[in-house]
């Protein structure tokens, strides 16, 4: 990865600061383009991209598809629920069949951690990871860091970012940690001990189990969704108790004697990890995150198409 040129975007781990900044610089131009009356460019007019979603997604899928279409690429969409995967076809066979129809790039979401790495070793196509199990979600981390950077006028170094909630099952948390650290930010995770993996401190992040104390430390709070679909055993007694200890509401926010930037990768469980009042407040940049997502994904696809990350 040190060559400065990568073929795939499989994760943030291993990306250098300069590569992330190239993505941001390119995304800034796409952000400006997305404000113009004509939002489309012909940059990837000779590229065909397949979006393979083996797991549910609304935001990421729409965001990637919009990014691809605004770059002028041809797009095909695939979801496992309506495909031959249900008939027992393997991942490699599915993808090889799609690639034989002259597809240049694959954007894939898959429930298995490492699925994108596996695919990259076995097929001759560029792969963009749109979330692989509990492993990484690189474009979410990039858009989160880009949103923080934009809010602080381009300066993310030294900022204190708190990630709250289900760290154990969160690909967003892991990618965010790698990305923020590469850019020089400090990271703390906060949540119940059952939802914070033991290895996390080896990544150089701080750990807290007390949200009020952690909020005092932070410049930014990224409130993760409680992933009910991944809770195969009980990690906390009840949603009500979780919300009381780790949910962000106005009372908690008002106790802080400072500005705090509030983020959420979506979809929001309103009233669980974040109250509606906070999510819709002036402190929140949740919708800016979604807006930035298209520009970031355009930048990633554009740079990868040039093999230029």
């Amino acid at each position: 990865m040190n060559s400065g040129v990568i073929k795939h975007l499989l994760g943030i781990k291993g990306l250098e600061k300069s590569q992330i900044e190239s993505i941001f610089q390119t995304a800034e131009n796409f952000s400006e383009l997305l404000q113009a009356p004509v939002k489309k460019t012909p940059a990837l007019r000779d590229i065909t991209i397949a979006n393979l979603f083996f797991e549910n997604s609304t935001r990421t899928r729409v965001s990637f598809e919009l990014a691809e279409k605004r770059l002028g690429a041809d797009v095909v969409n695939f979801s496992s629920s309506s495909s031959s995967v249900k008939k027992g076809e393997t991942l490699i066979d599915t993808v090889k069949n799609i690639l034989s129809m002259k597809v240049d790039m694959i954007v894939m979401r898959h429930p298995a951690p490492g699925a994108c790495q596996f695919l990259a070793k076995h097929v001759n196509s560029q792969i963009v990871n749109a979330g692989d199990g509990t492993h990484e979600h690189p474009t979410q981390a990039l858009l989160d860091a880009f949103s923080i950077r934009n809010h602080f006028n381009g300066n993310i170094e030294g900022k204190r970012v708190l990630i709250v909630g289900d760290i154990k099952h969160s690909r967003v948390a892991l990618s965010n940690i790698y990305c923020l650290q590469a850019l020089g930010a400090e990271v703390m995770v906060c949540g119940p001990a059952t939802l914070i993996p033991k290895y996390i401190e080896t990544l150089g992040v701080k750990v807290s189990h007390n949200l009020d104390e952690a909020l005092k430390w932070a410049d930014v709070a990224n409130m993760l969704r409680i992933q009910l679909e991944r809770q195969d055993s009980r990690f906390f007694p009840s949603l009500k108790e979780y919300s009381k200890l780790y949910g962000l509401d106005m009372d908690r926010l008002n106790k802080l004697d400072k500005e705090l930037l509030i983020m959420h990768p979506g979809p929001i469980n309103r009233g669980v990890e974040i109250s509606s009042e906070v999510a819709d407040s002036d402190h929140s940049i949740i919708l800016q995150q979604v807006e930035n997502g298209v520009a970031i994904r355009m930048a990633v696809l554009f740079l990868l198409a040039q093999r230029n990350l």
Binding site: Q25, E28, N29, E32, A43, D46, L71, F302, A305, Q306
Partner: peptide
Amino acid sequence: LDHTFYRDDISRGGIHIPKPS
């Protein structure tokens, strides 16, 4: 004005990081 996104040689090699328009 930056013309990077309108070039006819994207994906044909070369490094093109855009500058602001």
